[in-house]
Design a protein around this nucleic acid. Sequence first.
DNA 1: TCCCAGGTCCTAC
DNA 2: GTAGGACCTGGG
Length: 306
Amino acid sequence: MKSINLPREFDPAVVFQSGQTFRWYAIDTLKSDWIGIVSGRVLRIRRHDLELLGSLNMNQDLEHFIPSYFSSADDVEMIERSFPDSQYLVSAVKQFRGLRLITQDPWECLISFVCSINKNIPAISKCIEMLSARFGEKIRSDLDGDFFAFPEPKRLSKATDDELLSCGVGFRSKYIKYISEKIVSSALDLRIPYALSYANARKYLISKLSGLTMGVGPKVCDCALLFSYHKLEAFPIDVWMLRCLSSHYAKELKLNSLMRRNAISSKTYDLTSAKAREYFGNYAGYAQQYLYMKTRADTIRNRGPV
DNA sequence: TCCCAGGTCCTAC
DNA sequence: GTAGGACCTGGG
């Protein structure tokens, strides 16, 4: 299997620890060697080369898939030049050089971020692994240990509540069921948002999936739009971004007392993310990701791992 | 043991 | 319309 070159501005240790994706694992202490399970494939990255170690279908077209998954067409230098003049953002970009927003499968991304609700990152990864091991197809590979693809909507729609609960999804089980049933019944078509603008794609997903105990609120929706549909204006606001915006951008964004609690209303969310899009520009999603990483790193340095 | 986690939904006011 | 609480479960 010949190896495929990755984008020049790409640091796996940054990209895979940025909370965009939950199925990449460092296999050396220096974090230069990684294994990931992506869309039915087992991939390995060593420095800047990528190999395919296993797949549901060995004839898969990696030459096409890899540039798309790693968003090779993104001109990161141009994106950074488009950012506003902000010292905090400049230092974040410097600290996390090599970051890219990857382009994942929307279904896996959506369910992963539904699983992320009120969980920490290690717990999210574990939950997704358990779902895959229980409901996903086994991937043929030469490596020790078994690898499983992320389960298909059809399989999850048939899962019983007890089966889902055994994977640690907790109260999110009903969300997972509803969403997969909507896809199986064609009431929701995850291909549609590709062709829509950010605003319309968001309207589509929210109209199909918000309320009615579907579990997709503004934050989960923005994560799907940014991390799988590559809508780079999307600016997901979570607890970390709330802290970041209120500590560093309260004046620039004219925010008043965001941090009432560890949550914001959907109206405040929409207002705040609109201001952030205006301030950070067309690539606000990239700015968000740099800021997310810096805010977490600063917090961890001050008070230990979170 | 306790607090909190890449939020969302529901209820009471 | 919105503030406050509940929610499964597990990591630290």
